[in-house]
């Protein structure tokens, strides 16, 4: 494989969130912590003429650190990825992502530019999170946060209204927004196709959540 694989990646300006003195980090979850100053920074967008300018003016894309990811999953879904699971180490620690952060002693600088190596780990962590969240939904004693309808029976054809509501719940929990019409149509199609190919409704919802958690929108703020 060529070396271009590992050298790919955009070069955006670094925004060190930990340098914002007025932000009380302990009172906010990861996503809120990251969104607050960025929203202020992007309040006055300027027209982009080339890629660099687009990146500068957008000023909104920064790779989530593992700590932010874990905090977000815990606060929104009640699953603590920092804990051991089925005898394995936590997802936060296991992949030793050199993304930088409070828990990393091998990088002196946060690397917020995604690379193929990090994307491999990102996919694995996102998928593990999705499966664990859906597993927890089936265990009422363990689940801290519930989806309104049972993901093991709800399909887009059995109850389209409840299905769309559930989709929006998952969108809000993961991407902090409602789904757009195009996204709803997309997931409807995907769900139908997966059900037709023999997947269970539970697997379909795991897939939906896995896709959202491994999306660019989720991992880049």
């Amino acid at each position: 494989m060529s070396d271009s694989l590992c050298s790919a990646g955009w070069r955006g300006p670094a925004l060190l969130l930990c340098c914002v003195p007025w932000l009380n980090l302990s009172s906010l979850n990861g996503r809120a912590m990251a969104r607050t100053p960025i929203a202020a920074a992007s309040a006055t967008p300027s027209p982009a003429t080339d890629r660099d300018q687009a990146l500068t003016s957008a000023n909104q894309a920064f790779l989530v650190t593992p700590e932010q990811f874990v905090r977000h999953i815990k606060s929104q879904f009640g699953v603590d990825l920092a804990q051991t699971y089925q005898g394995q180490s936590s997802a936060l620690q296991r992949y030793l992502l050199p993304l930088g952060g409070l828990d990393h002693d091998t990088t002196y600088e946060r690397d917020r530019n995604v690379k193929v190596q990090t994307l491999l780990a990102v996919q694995a962590i996102a998928w593990e999170a999705a499966t664990r969240i859906m597993e927890q939904q089936q265990k009422p004693k363990l689940a801290k946060i519930f989806l309104t309808s049972n993901p093991n029976t709800l399909t887009t054809d059995s109850d389209p209204v409840a299905w769309a509501q559930q989709l929006d719940e998952i969108f809000i929990a993961s991407l902090s927004r409602l789904s757009t019409e195009n996204e709803r149509i997309f997931f409807q199609q995907q769900s139908r196709e997966m059900i037709q190919s023999g997947a269970t409704p539970g697997q379909v919802w795991t897939a939906v959540l896995g896709i959202l958690l491994s999306s660019m929108e989720f991992w880049y703020l």
Binding site: L5, A8, G9, W10, G12, P45, P47, A48, R51, A54, L55, S57, A58, Q60, A61, V114, K115, V116, L119, T180, N182, E183, F186, I211, L212, S215, M216, E217, Y220
Partner: peptide, 25 residues
Amino acid sequence: TFNKLQREQTKEARKALYDPWISMQ
């Protein structure tokens, strides 16, 4: 497909951000 869909529906200034992610995926 979902990442491409998101790229299509995002603001023009942010589209470029999606390209490396989609390519690496």
